[in-house]
Write a protein that binds this DNA or RNA. Structure first.
Lengths: 229, 229
DNA sequence: TAGATACTGTTGGTTTTCCAACGAAGGGAG
DNA sequence: CTCCCTTCGTTGGAAAACCAACAGTATCTA
């Protein structure tokens, strides 16, 4: 059950930090998030915010808690496609283009506070129009960054075995860090979820890979032992 | 070894059909593809066109043949992330934004004819500037459509078992067709590649699913037997 | 310091997938 | 029609992943 809530100081910060709003004057942004088409609400865990097939006409910013993007097949079996933690903005893609039908359920995974912006109304707002060019540009950057992230995950997920998934993921992390030694953000469970494998099996595979001399690791620090060719 | 080639009548058609150029006057488009920064070349199969880590400064349109996007890990093991068949445009994402580093190899999988547009030069062309607003808008649409496709594939790939992958994929196809009976575009091998499973194992699983009363199929026509709940 | 609470690593039995090989069912082409 | 070639389905042994249960380690708090 949703309850109307109010913006707190820390929330404003999260809004400003959204890539979509980068470069927008804070005063102008502040005026928008005080309009009536912007709402903040608290939801219990396991609350469905938007349902598959429905028209998506809201931007959604998670202020606290965790929200999941859930794919559901015709036999009503659901699975988490993406996690939206605090500070994550979702739905910007739907603000543009003809097909605004949502392909997933959006559902709270914990008690959460969520800000929503009705962008049909937003687009009509004359205050918005002043910052629209910046946001349009940001939206393009945002969409493109997203395609890169999604394509990377596809590369990782499409590998046949757990070992190959790990090697693909770790290789990309190493490239990003420009170093064969680097830290990763995810803990074992989150990494297993990201790669869609069992945590325990993944741990075992990491052990083997270390024994086989491919990698070294301790906690979240990994070193890749590239073979000369 | 790349050979310079020339545009044929059928090629022009493929260019016009690119979503990126939708709504652009054909005459204006024709003038651009005759500029020196647009090139057509034939390549033997297994030719690397662009390499991981290199700066991507070209749009790439496959005119004939097949080109693969290949992820390669630090141990030089490669795997196909995406297939680019005839008519496919690749690289538009890289024309915008700061990080233009390519994360994959682009490599021909057959003898292919490929058109490339150097977009650094393209962006400077005064003829291009006249159509730039349309292309910018198209690019945004293109990027967004791409995020939807990629997210869908992630949903399918992230399923734990072959059966679940198939159910997720078929459910989405059914939704698109707005019908529980529908045809799919992919043959068995392509579907198995898309879902990253073995073809034979997938065939066996389809059989079982039919025996279990979940689906019916014949060749590429499937019917989903949704359970009432 | 002791206890509670994550997070990580290990192990063994069960299930699923891979893999290679083969048989069956369709199309063309000669 | 027959032959060739491609696609689709089946099968059985080998390999890998799942799963549950448990042991080790670090951190935090009382």
């Amino acid at each position: 059950m949703a309850n109307v809530a109010h913006l707190q100081e820390a929330d404003i910060e999260k809004i400003y930090l959204c890539p979509l709003f980068k470069g927008v004057e804070t005063a102008k942004l502040a005026s928008i998030i005080k309009k009536p088409y912007t709402k903040v609400a608290t939801h219990e865990d396991d609350t469905v915010l938007f349902k598959t097939g429905q028209k998506m006409n809201q931007l959604l910013l998670v202020l606290d808690g965790e929200v999941g993007v859930i794919g559901t097949n015709l036999w009503n079996k659901g699975s988490i496609v993406e996690l939206l933690g605090a500070g994550t903005l979702y739905g910007a893609e739907f603000a543009v283009g003809a097909d605004k039908k949502l392909g997933y359920d959006i559902c709270t995974l914990e008690n959460s506070r969520v800000l929503t912006i009705d962008y049909v109304k937003l687009l009509c707002d004359s205050d918005y129009r002043k910052i629209a060019p910046i946001i349009s540009e940001n939206l393009l950057q945002f969409a493109i960054a997203r395609t890169h992230n999604l394509q990377a995950r596809i590369y990782h997920l499409a590998q046949g075995s757990t070992r190959e998934k790990l090697l693909a993921y770790l290789s990309d992390q190493s490239r990003q860090a420009k170093n064969t030694t680097f830290q990763i953000d995810l803990d074992r469970q989150d990494l297993a979820d990201y790669l869609s494998v069992e945590r325990s099996a993944m741990c075992a595979e990491l052990s083997k890979m270390q024994k086989d001399g491919l990698i070294n690791y301790h906690k979240n620090e990994f070193t890749l032992k590239k073979i000369k060719k």
